[in-house]
Nucleic acid binder design. Sequence first.
DNA 1: CATTGTGAAGCGTTTCACAGCC
DNA 2: GGCTGTGAAACGCTTCACAATG
Lengths: 241, 241
Amino acid sequence: MCARVPNVADGMAPDRNRRRIPDATVSRLPVYLRILGEQAEAGVDNISSEGLAELAGVNAAKVRKDLSYLGSYGTRGVGYEVAYLVYQIRRELGLTHDWPVVIVGAGNLGQALAGYGGFGERGFPVAGIVDIDTTKVGTVLGGTRVRHIDELPQIVQTRRVNIGVIATPGAAAQDAADRLVKAGVTSILNFAPIVLSVPRAIEVRKVDLAVELQILSYHEQRRAGGAIHAVQSGTGRSATA
Amino acid sequence: MCARVPNVADGMAPDRNRRRIPDATVSRLPVYLRILGEQAEAGVDNISSEGLAELAGVNAAKVRKDLSYLGSYGTRGVGYEVAYLVYQIRRELGLTHDWPVVIVGAGNLGQALAGYGGFGERGFPVAGIVDIDTTKVGTVLGGTRVRHIDELPQIVQTRRVNIGVIATPGAAAQDAADRLVKAGVTSILNFAPIVLSVPRAIEVRKVDLAVELQILSYHEQRRAGGAIHAVQSGTGRSATA
DNA sequence: CATTGTGAAGCGTTTCACAGCC
DNA sequence: GGCTGTGAAACGCTTCACAATG
């Protein structure tokens, strides 16, 4: 996913918290964080790895190992203090301050993203939304006026945007990425169904609806044509990973 | 990700193509498929693992291993015939026929999904969109009239829907899942930021925007506060995984 | 004595390296 | 000669199992 550095982990004085956290763990921390936030609101102030694992739909050992990368913040025989854990995870994920994002593409998806309040709430305010189509410029989405894509560099600079979201059709996505990178963005969330070509230093994450549906299709197809007579086995509930 | 079956792989007469394909491979097949489709349109009728790997942003050996799970459809010294590979991947993914989907939740995201033509184009026509809010019922989104969630069982049965998409707020998502399962849906694509509890036999995939942004935040935070003096190393282009 | 933190085993995925084949 | 197909090594992640400990 991201470039590997040989072996910095040990030896080289990690000052305070410069451990490298496995990608798999990083992708679960936001899930723990949301659950812990809910628990805190519900008045729970202590939680065991078992309890957190249950709510997150994962194995308890995995929770412990994940949390151990942040440091030893649990108490043996007791569990983890919810508030402190929230603080530590937020710190590790860099959520101690807001990260304004800029959305490229004011089509269906761009509109939905801009209109989706949860973005700002979770620390990612929409600093701007741009489109190349001048007929869309000026319309207002979720409180943000659509601006022309040529204004991208200005938005990125004045609002100090590090994260760009590509919500254009596939054909326009590479151009969008090029413009974002040129404007100074260093992380991209790509909703377009293409593989972006960007400098190595840029972190890219991709969300592709078609891919997700096709993976589900694969499983449906197996269910139907596959295993002899695929019985609807097990009606018990279980958390999903 | 999905429930593991002990060890069916060998021994038990795989009739024709009942091999189990690794999850990681399944998640890449849609990417290869899209690229191959584009190549076919561009008039390319043969491609090497190297070429496909380049376009997909992965390692060539990985492409070969992935394709080998489908069978030996390449020609040594030559490469793979694009059209045939497209056919085989489509067959394996169950894309030889349409999979109608039902969308639960006609808010921002539900609207964007329903309005996004790419859904139907790629073999996943929107069989219906439902909401619990009666004020939304009757409005038309992307050519589909919003119906009340109580009509879900009827839609699922008459349109033979296997795949449900949850586009509700988190608080309503578990109820949506329960209703989908009860109505007979066996695969769910969940956009709500909660861990769904469903019977083991149900395949669930989750797309969480907040999680994606928080992962990017982690990398930005590392860049800023991390490694001594994090130089913007490497400006060369490289495909992203 | 319940629960964490963690070596070590287990497992799935990736990559290498090269035999096999066109 | 070029490229596929695939054992085997390497790697990273998950899970187990238990010593450490409040």
